[in-house]
Amino acid sequence: MDLFLQNIVGGLQSASMYGLAALGLVLIYKTTGVINFAQGELGMFNAFVAAWLYANNVPLVIAVLLTLIIAGIVGFLIEWGVMRHAVKIDPLGKMIMTMGFVMIAQGLAPMFFGNNPLYFPKLLQGDPISIGGVSILPNTILIIVITLGIMAALFYVLQKSKWGLAIRVTAENIQTAKLMGVPTKYVSIAVWTLGTALGALAATMVAPLTTVSVTMMADIHLKSFISAVLGGFATFYGPVVGAFIIGILNNLIGFYISSKWATAILYVFILIVLIFKPTGIFGKKHIKKV
């Protein structure tokens, strides 16, 4: 039982990272119609920024905060400098453009930060604490708490604030939103800024567990997409719920079945979901106007 709980807690940690990344994905997708395939690699680039800042003696917490701000600026620049001017490009073209960003991020990282992986420490050092037979690293608790805090705040803003309403209306129907006077331009700037920052946050959380390298985000990137497919792209919370299921499943499969094949098994699992519940757990079928 303790082992089981131990795995659940470990799963919650991965779930936090997948969830943050997936939320970034779905925020951008629902409001702008763009599937941002560069989410992971932008996170990777920003993790390099964080590691570089840290290596240059910027205090850890400041380095993370600075990184989030820089990530936000990167997201802002992508929207303001590029995506905004691509309004006439169809969703497929925009998706291809984000794949261009993947290559740019993968090329720029070694140009700025060299070819060697960088080190980035855990936010909280310290030995595992034992809670009811389950030993947890303080850093794990911090990751889960930060994630839950951010999600709570974001969903509160989405549901209760004027800005949240603007985002939800834009997500529902951008044409109607425009007609109703919602500043959709600012909405897309906001989601790109926020989405990229969320991806960067996930990246700084995973950085201590691997190293900061060009390939560090491959796993999170894929799992955040799988989470979004599982939860469905129709709601903001779907992908987050999906992320928690995937994160926990991933750990349980890794422990009880095979750690080597955990990703493969999860992938087959998600294909099965696609067969039986193609729009995801919280998906809705919408009728396209002819």
Partner: peptide
């Protein structure tokens, strides 16, 4: 290193747009 990559990525964006 990586410049070719960056240019390829930029080319994708530029050509699509």
């Amino acid at each position: 290193d990586g410049l070719a990559f960056v240019l390829t990525g930029v080319s994708i964006v530029v050509f699509v747009m």
